[in-house]
């Protein structure tokens, strides 16, 4: 417990830093929101009116004080481009991104981990080469390309997949908001039609993400399995006459899991923020596309809110992974 408390303490300066940096960064960005939002036919006077209503005519330290005060009250400010409070917007969009990213990641794990293990066990075999080809193809295909290709084949040509128009087709009704994950919410309320609708919408984007994240997971599993399989305790285990299954799954894989879990954490947080392109292709109302749109419109509040949310998530995720280390490998716990 003490370790966790100590770790949490180190988070505070990080967050303060993030708050300051995002504030300053959005202010030095080129582009004048007042001019942008004054719209067509703006006059200097109408621009000034808008600058005043946005509070951008106040000195910078004053703006910062307001910003921090708002944050302390849980107010992330208002987005000008969608016209809603940033906190509402992020809390409605984060589950969409998380659902998509988690599905993609789980799919990737299911394929990548066994593939990596096989490749390591049968080094140089057909499986090993296949693993290399898949990993290389996965990283080299840009996600938007994979996404568009999948849409072209499975929606446009074959018609197996529903139209890529977001989390649900236009005529289905969204399940009540419990967790924000449509799959879970529809199951909880026993609405199987919505469950199937949202699941079928999820398949293509999740596969797209999975293809992209296969590579790091497979390669990491393979590399760390190779290292472990070459170590002496495995030779001892084999010499003691344990069968292959026990040696590989029980002894080798467990020890190889540490670097894999680290990679998973990184891949997850990377995907969550960076799957903007997948969100664009599938019209997925996620957090990444929200932040990018806001950035393109010099809309400060959502960008600040996004960076802050991501920083908090990243910190939480790292904390979780550190705790997982202890579960997987007791030595880590003792050393800590």
């Amino acid at each position: 417990m003490l370790t966790i408390a100590k770790r949490l303490l180190t988070v505070i300066p990080t967050l303060i830093g993030v708050v300051i940096v995002t504030f300053l960064l959005t202010r030095v960005l080129p582009g004048d929101p007042a001019v942008y939002f004054a719209g067509p036919a703006a006059t200097p006077q109408s621009i000034a009116e808008i600058r005043k209503s946005l509070g951008l005519d106040r000195p910078l330290p004053d703006q910062f004080a307001h910003y921090v005060n708002d944050l302390a009250h849980g107010n992330f400010g208002n987005s000008l481009s969608t016209g809603r409070p940033v906190a509402t917007e992020i809390s409605s969009r984060l589950p969409a991104s998380a659902e998509l990213t988690l599905s993609g990641l789980i799919l990737a794990i299911v394929i990548a981990v066994p593939l990596g293990i096989f490749a390591a066990v049968k080094q140089g075999s057909f499986i090993d080469h296949l693993c290399r080809v898949i990993a290389t193809a996965g990283v080299s295909l840009p996600v938007f390309f994979t996404g568009l290709l999948l849409v072209y084949i499975f929606y446009f040509n074959l018609g197996w997949s529903p139209a890529p128009i977001g989390r649900l087709d236009a005529f289905a009704t969204a399940p009540p908001d419990i967790t924000g994950f449509y799959l879970i919410d529809s199951l909880i309320t026993g609405n199987f039609e919505t469950f199937r609708a949202s699941l079928s919408q999820l398949v293509l984007p999740a596969v797209t993400l999975a293809v992209f994240s296969l590579a790091p997971i497979t390669r990491m599993t393979r590399a760390s399995m190779l290292a472990i399989l070459a170590s002496e305790f495995i030779r001892t285990a084999r010499a003691s006459g344990l069968n292959d299954r026990t040696v590989i799954l029980t002894y080798a894989f467990r020890n190889a899991m540490l670097p894999v879990v680290t990679t998973l954490g990184m891949v997850f947080s990377f995907l969550l923020g960076a799957n903007v392109l997948v969100e664009k292709v599938f019209a997925w109302p996620g957090i990444g596309s929200y932040a990018v749109e806001a950035l393109l419109q010099s809309d400060f509040a959502p960008v600040q809110g996004f960076v802050l949310t991501m920083a908090v998530l990243y910190v939480a995720l790292n904390l979780l992974i550190d705790m997982l280390y202890g579960v997987i490998d007791p030595r880590v716990r003792l050393e800590a």
Binding site: L148, I165, V281
Partner: peptide, 20 residues
């Protein structure tokens, strides 16, 4: 129902498939 579909290619696919 007015849906925002950022990808130009998908808007076209939706039209050609008859979904929009």
């Amino acid at each position: 129902i007015w849906r925002t579909i950022p990808s130009q290619g998908n808007r076209r696919a939706l039209m050609e498939r008859g979904d929009a």
